[in-house]
Computed example of a mutant assay.
Amino acid sequence: MPEDPIAHSELAALTRRFEEVAEKHDREFGILKSNLTAVRPHIGNLNQKVEALDKKIDRNQAQITELLTQLVGQRPDAS
């Protein structure tokens, strides 16, 4: 069976398109990976800040509870 030049041409075009798309995806993946690497330290820093805020909120809630407990039973007009 003789080779079909049109089929070979179409196959070559499809191969080129596939390779171009694969290269584009590789570049985009590299960019995403780089961005993720850059963001990771910020996430760690945010986690530390959230933990510190949680501790501060817990302390404040404990202080409020203690103060309210002390006020229970006191008359409003007593100094």
Rank of each mutant, 00 (worst) to 15 (best):
M1T: 12
P2V: 08
P2C: 03
E3P: 11
E3K: 10
E3G: 13
E3Y: 12
P5M: 02
A7G: 10
H8I: 14
H8Q: 15
S9E: 15
E10W: 00
A12W: 00
A13W: 00
A13K: 07
F18Y: 11
F18G: 12
E20N: 00
E20D: 06
V21H: 07
A22K: 11
E23Q: 14
E23G: 07
E23K: 10
K24Q: 02
K24A: 04
D26A: 12
R27S: 02
E28G: 03
E28A: 08
F29C: 12
G30Y: 01
G30V: 06
L32M: 14
L32D: 08
K33Q: 13
S34R: 04
S34T: 05
N35K: 10
N35R: 14
L36C: 06
P41N: 10
I43A: 12
I43K: 14
G44N: 01
G44D: 02
N45G: 11
N47W: 01
Q48S: 15
K49D: 10
E51T: 09
A52P: 05
L53D: 10
L53W: 07
D54I: 07
D54F: 02
D54P: 09
K55E: 08
K56L: 05
K56T: 04
I57P: 04
I57Q: 09
I57R: 11
I57F: 04
D58L: 06
D58I: 04
R59L: 10
R59W: 11
R59P: 05
N60I: 08
N60S: 11
Q61K: 11
A62I: 08
Q63D: 07
Q63F: 05
T65I: 02
T65G: 05
T65D: 11
T65N: 08
E66I: 04
E66M: 06
L68H: 10
L68I: 06
L68R: 13
Q70V: 09
Q70G: 10
V72R: 03
V72S: 03
G73T: 01
G73D: 01
Q74K: 04
Q74I: 07
Q74F: 01
Q74C: 00
Q74S: 02
R75K: 12
P76Q: 06
P76M: 03
P76T: 09
D77S: 05
A78M: 00
S79N: 12
S79G: 08
S79E: 15
